[in-house]
Simulated scan of single mutants.
Amino acid sequence: MISIEQLCKVYQTKDRKIIGVDNVTMTVEKGEIFGIVGYSGAGKSTLLRCINILERPTSGKVTLDGIDLLSLSPKELRTARQSIGMIFQGFHLAISKTVLENVAFALKASKVARAERKRRALELLDLVGLSDKANQYPAQLSGGQKQRVSIARALANNPKMLLCDEATSALDPNTTQSILKLLKKINRELGLTIVLITHEMEVVKEICNRCAVMEEGRIVEEGKTYDMFAHPQNALTKRFIQTVLDFNLPKELLERSKGTIVHMKFTGEIAGESVVSDLLQNYDVRGNILHGKVDYIQNKALGTFVIELTGEDKEVQQAIESVNEKVEVEVLPHDRSIHHSAAGAE
């Protein structure tokens, strides 16, 4: 487990102070995948580098499994860092070394014997699916393969935690998915705690048990990933979630519609029930489906559904009230463009 308490990082320039991290307190539990999301300049990379003291915090406390990292001597800190692996957006591979040598290099720094270095490096390359690339050089690899080498290298010293600094930002969508699957495999098979920073909420949705949203050096919202998607509280969180769950209804469609347009949000087990079908059967209304989608976050369903209801006003109102007992309902006006998500309107 890693605990961060009232962490601040301030940079002093000639003219002014720049606050990189502003009084952050959070805990990452052992064995979880924790995402930190924010736009460029939010302070997430600085926070990540403060966790392993690559950046020394101006104030605050960083504790790894009960050890106060800021209280350690330089030698003790170097030893403690062996418990924290790190991968980067830019891979940081030595171009003059083979794939095998890149992975083994981390072990050489820990004074592991040559034969054991080779054995361990080959074992890790097999774990990340690159056994056949051991004698190739980074220039011969794709971006996804380079990141797999970086992951293998970060695992060389059997770390307790893996820090991922925009690890998928330089990769195409298909390669990103393969790297996320690999990280989930490592988390599951090795019990490794993973802290992942990103500006892509899709990455958080795919892999993270919990997440935090950062803005201007502060954490503005934190919680379980499903809860954040289902019930976001902060305006920035809502904007991030819209990048994943967004749907647009054309203004012309809304203006042409004669009935009542209803946006419904389904969470948890209710997403699998026949709510809309029951509504149309039990009330004297007609339904025109305008949008429907179900996403799965941490294996739990989160659905959004937009339907135009027509019929007598009393029947429509009763139908809406009956549905509102089971799901979150919003009646949408006809005179505006819609940019809603499953999170609802801001």
Rank of each mutant, 00 (worst) to 15 (best):
residue 280 L to V: 13
residue 319 A to V: 09
residue 294 V to W: 01
residue 303 G to E: 00
residue 320 I to Q: 03
residue 276 V to G: 02
residue 296 Y to S: 00
residue 321 E to K: 10
residue 313 D to K: 02
residue 275 V to D: 11
residue 286 R to S: 15
residue 283 Y to D: 12
residue 309 L to N: 03
residue 305 F to R: 03
residue 304 T to I: 10
residue 312 E to S: 07
residue 300 K to C: 02
residue 327 V to P: 06
residue 303 G to R: 00
residue 326 K to G: 05
residue 275 V to M: 10
residue 321 E to V: 04
residue 297 I to C: 01
residue 307 I to G: 01
residue 310 T to E: 15
residue 316 V to Y: 01
residue 282 N to M: 12
residue 306 V to W: 05
residue 313 D to L: 03
residue 308 E to S: 04
residue 296 Y to H: 08
residue 295 D to M: 05
residue 292 G to R: 05
residue 324 N to I: 03
residue 317 Q to F: 02
residue 281 Q to P: 05
residue 306 V to T: 06
residue 288 N to D: 13
residue 299 N to A: 14
residue 320 I to L: 06
residue 281 Q to A: 13
residue 296 Y to V: 05
residue 310 T to N: 15
residue 305 F to W: 11
residue 279 L to S: 07
residue 282 N to R: 13
residue 315 E to F: 00
residue 292 G to H: 00
residue 278 D to C: 11
residue 300 K to A: 01
residue 322 S to F: 14
residue 316 V to T: 00
residue 285 V to K: 08
residue 289 I to K: 05
residue 283 Y to V: 07
residue 290 L to P: 07
residue 318 Q to S: 12
residue 284 D to H: 12
residue 293 K to H: 13
residue 322 S to I: 05
residue 281 Q to Y: 14
residue 304 T to H: 05
residue 288 N to V: 09
residue 294 V to Y: 02
residue 309 L to S: 04
residue 298 Q to I: 02
residue 294 V to K: 00
residue 281 Q to R: 14
residue 301 A to V: 04
residue 319 A to S: 13
residue 322 S to C: 12
residue 275 V to L: 11
residue 277 S to A: 14
residue 318 Q to Y: 02
residue 325 E to I: 11
residue 299 N to P: 05
residue 309 L to A: 04
residue 324 N to G: 11
residue 312 E to G: 13
residue 327 V to F: 04
residue 314 K to P: 01
residue 295 D to E: 12
residue 293 K to L: 04
residue 315 E to S: 09
residue 282 N to L: 14
residue 314 K to W: 01
residue 278 D to M: 10
residue 290 L to I: 14
residue 287 G to S: 09
residue 325 E to L: 13
residue 317 Q to K: 10
residue 289 I to M: 11
residue 315 E to A: 12
residue 283 Y to H: 15
residue 283 Y to T: 09
residue 308 E to Q: 10
residue 312 E to N: 13
residue 311 G to C: 07
residue 280 L to Q: 08
residue 289 I to F: 02
residue 287 G to H: 06
residue 298 Q to A: 12
residue 322 S to D: 15
residue 278 D to H: 15
residue 328 E to V: 11
residue 313 D to E: 15
residue 314 K to S: 14
residue 314 K to N: 11
residue 288 N to F: 10
residue 307 I to E: 02
residue 289 I to V: 15
residue 285 V to Q: 10
residue 321 E to M: 09
residue 290 L to H: 08
residue 304 T to P: 01
residue 302 L to G: 00
residue 277 S to I: 12
